[in-house]
Structure formats: C-alpha cells, structure tokens
C-alpha cells in the first residue's frame, strides 16, 4: 500500500506539471467559479456531497488558476460522533489533492470494549482526483463532468481494526464519478462507482474474515437547486460487508448546502449510517463548514 501511495504521488505530480506550463504562460487568475460549483467536502475530504463523491474540483479557481479549501465536519449519532477536518487544493479546476483526518468518537461503546469512554478511532485520508472530461454546468447538456479519483486511507488504530477482524489497517479506494447540473430542470445528479474493500469507509479497517476482495460500490446523489445559493437533496452509498462480527449497512442522507458567500459554504444533513460495529440505527445530524478561495 505504501508503494501505491508513492505511485499516486508521482502520478499526481506528473499530471500537475503536465498541465501547469500551458497555464503558467498566462498569469494565474484567482477565483471565478460559480457559487456551489465547488461542492462541499465529503466525509472523506474530497469534493462531493456529504457521503457521496462528486466529480467537482475543490477551490474557487477556474481552469486559469489555483484554489483551495479547508473544512470541518461534525456528525453526531446515537452511539458515535464523527469529526472530520481537512484541506484540499484545486489546480486549474482539473486536479484536486486532499487530506482529511477523521476521528470517530466511540462514546459509551469504547467503554464497553474496554478502550475507555470516548475512545477515538483516527484515520488519515489522502485523496487525489483528476477531472477527465466534461463540465458540470456548461457544454453538452447531457455530458456530465467526469473525474477519476483515488483515496489512500491509513487507519491509525490497527489494534481496533485487528480486533474486529479486518484484514488490513490501510487501504486504497479507486473511484470514477460523474456529476451534472441539468439546468433546464435545476436538478443535480451525481453517480460514483467506487472500487473498495473499506469497512465503514476504513474506520474499521479494510477487508475481513467474511470477504477480503475488492468490490464495486455505488454512490448516488440527487439535488435540486432552489437558488444560486441553496441546493437540497439526498444521497445513497452502498457498502461492502466484510466483517462477520459486525453487519455493515448502506449509508444515506438528506442534505442542504448553502453558499453563505463566495468563500463559505455551509452544509447540514440528516444522516443514516445504519449499523456500526454491532450498534444499530446510527442516525443523526451532520454540519459541515467549508472555506474556499
């Protein structure tokens, strides 16, 4: 996995240097994206909706500049709390590099497992995304913006991932994502296929005793644009089920994303994660704030 990550960095560096000269000849131009077309930060730090990935690129930049964002997300559930902070850089609305730190607070569950009340499971996620075709708003009305991405995840609590029966504490997800705003109906549609073996996104490790193979999972988003500043919608994300001790459910949410101004986007969601590590019905609220430039 270390080698995958190294390969990833080299590939991304090569991609950036290959596109930079054309833009570097001109003066870099800051900002210029339409409101909300840089999405919000997904739970894994890449640009998306809340739970699903989108093909949009972080930052306010267009193809003529470099932008970025920082975000913080809090999600409170019956037995858990998930805190995520991260940052992302967008190069020429083409390449996105992201980093996020997830901390899953286990509250009373941690105590029951002998880890202590409020024990936190931590995970680092390094992401890279390349927009390969299309434009989410402009161009052919039926041609979505398409991106390919990779997320390298390093769970920092291997004693826990071992204990639940995960095969590894590090893993890499690969995904392809298509997103389009159908202006004539004010509807946003996103679809992502993710090649993964992550348990609960990696918070419970990767692969397991029940299944240790990669598989394709689906993430879908449907949004309705109420104004330039406000989009409401829902998302659905299928998940693997690799651990025999803990059934894993699909995730879904209902969200609202509001552009406070050009630099701040606030998202709120009702989220249902289903069963997490034998604790069923993990439903709750999510609030996410992202600053972009």
């Amino acid at each position: 996995m270390k080698r995958t990550f190294h390969l990833l960095s080299v590939t991304m560096a090569a991609m950036i240097t290959s596109i930079a000269p054309s833009a570097a000849a001109e003066e870099l131009r800051q900002g210029g994206k339409l409101l909300l077309t840089n999405g919000i930060a997904s739970v894994e730090g890449s640009t998306g909706g809340g739970l699903a990935s989108w093909s949009l690129i972080a930052g306010n930049e267009t193809r003529d500049g470099i932008g970025g964002s920082v975000h913080a997300t809090v999600a409170e559930f019956k037995d858990y709390r998930l805190d995520t902070e991260g940052l992302a850089v967008g190069f020429f609305n083409r390449v996105e590099l992201s980093y996020a730190r997830q901390a899953l607070n286990t509250k009373a569950i941690g105590q029951a497992l002998g880890l202590g009340y409020g024990y936190k499971l931590n995970q680092d996620i390094y992401g890279a995304k390349l927009r390969v075709a299309g434009d989410a708003v402009y161009g052919d009305p039926l041609m979505p913006q398409i991106a390919v991405g990779i997320q390298h995840k390093r769970n920092l609590d291997s004693q826990v991932t071992d204990a639940v029966g995960a095969a590894e504490s590090e893993g890499t997800d690969f995904y392809v994502s298509a997103t389009k705003l159908f202006l004539s109906h004010s509807i946003l549609i996103g679809a992502t296929a993710r090649y993964t073996k992550a348990n609960q996104g990696g918070l419970l490790g990767f692969g397991g005793d029940k299944n240790n193979d990669y598989g394709v999972q689906f993430e879908g988003s449907l949004g309705y644009q109420l104004s330039r500043k406000l989009v409401i919608g829902g998302e659905y994300r299928t998940k693997p089920d690799n651990l025999s001790i803990a059934r894993e459910d699909d995730w879904y949410d209902f969200f609202a994303a509001y552009a406070i101004n050009r630099n701040l986007t606030l998202a709120a969601a009702y989220v249902d994660l289903g069963s997490i590590a034998t604790s069923a019905e993990q439903r709750g609220g999510l609030i996410s704030l992202r600053a972009s430039f």
Partner: peptide
C-alpha cells in the same frame, strides 16, 4: 475571454 469572465 476566460471561464471566469463567462461566469461573471
């Protein structure tokens, strides 16, 4: 014209 001009 650039993308940012069109968006403006």
């Amino acid at each position: 014209t650039q993308m940012a001009d069109l968006n403006a």
